[in-house]
Amino acid sequence: MDITVRITQQEEADALLSRSVLALLVGALLDRQIPSDQAFAAPATIARRLGCEDLDANRIAWHDPEHLAALFAARPAVHAYPAAMARRVQDLCRHLVTRHNGRAAAVWEGAATGRDLYRRINELPGFGRQKAQIFVALLGKQYGVQPDGWRAAAGPYGEDGTFRSVADINGLESLEKVRAHRQQERRAAKNTAPGHGT
């Protein structure tokens, strides 16, 4: 099935996300403390710096860690915390190699239910509850991975017609709506933080 995503609004990056589910996983892993579109554009940058067209789990898993960290840190850095994120991406790829023969799609292939799908994603290094829910929503809404109960397993991110996360980005307009939602969430969290207004 041909997939076309428009998460980053960058042709090269979105093309890679459309054909490589490993790139999708890496983008999701990096989607922390930086804008989602920047995180999901990073796999294309990483592939380019590794000198390859697509990401390869085996190549990243056994790459020299110091060199990989340097590739992440080269300007412009792929993340605000390049060394830490290089380690996390390498841990993810090693998990895929040792548990799934290097095939990212094997993580969710054959998932019988949404709960099973969520469990498989949640077991990945660097994927906590919220990130796993968002990824289940992303797979369901944009990649056609929809076992029974996937929306429930994705929590609020699985709801239709919302703009909560990267799962809902399919163009510039939806990207702006997701950005606005995240800004609103940050303001709400700041307003409820201990000591606010004292």
Rank of each mutant, 00 (worst) to 15 (best):
I34Q: 08
L92D: 11
A154M: 09
R103Y: 13
H100L: 03
I169P: 00
H79E: 00
V89L: 09
R187V: 15
R48D: 03
A15I: 06
A193F: 08
L138D: 06
P156W: 01
G144W: 06
E11D: 12
P65H: 13
C93Y: 12
L117H: 09
V178E: 02
A152Q: 09
R151K: 12
P156T: 00
P194Q: 04
A57P: 14
P35Q: 00
I46N: 02
A180F: 06
E173P: 00
Y118K: 11
L30P: 11
T192S: 15
G149E: 10
N122H: 09
A189C: 15
I3T: 14
T8K: 02
L24V: 05
A77C: 04
L124D: 04
Q142I: 10
R120T: 14
Y118D: 11
T4K: 10
L22M: 06
A15L: 10
A154L: 15
N191H: 15
V78E: 01
R88W: 13
A28F: 06
T162H: 08
T4A: 11
H63Q: 09
E109Y: 02
P76C: 00
R49D: 00
A39Q: 00
Y157A: 02
L175A: 11
H181L: 11
Q183P: 00
W62R: 10
V26G: 01
A69W: 10
E11F: 09
F127M: 01
C52S: 04
E173R: 06
T162Q: 14
L172V: 10
A132Q: 05
M85F: 12
M1Y: 06
V26S: 01
T113L: 09
A13F: 03
V178W: 07
A137H: 10
A111R: 07
A47G: 02
A153G: 08
V78K: 00
G110R: 13
P76N: 01
R103Q: 15
V21W: 13
A137Y: 07
K177I: 04
T45W: 09
P147M: 03
T113D: 04
H95K: 07
T192P: 14
H196W: 14
D56C: 12
A84P: 04
C93G: 14
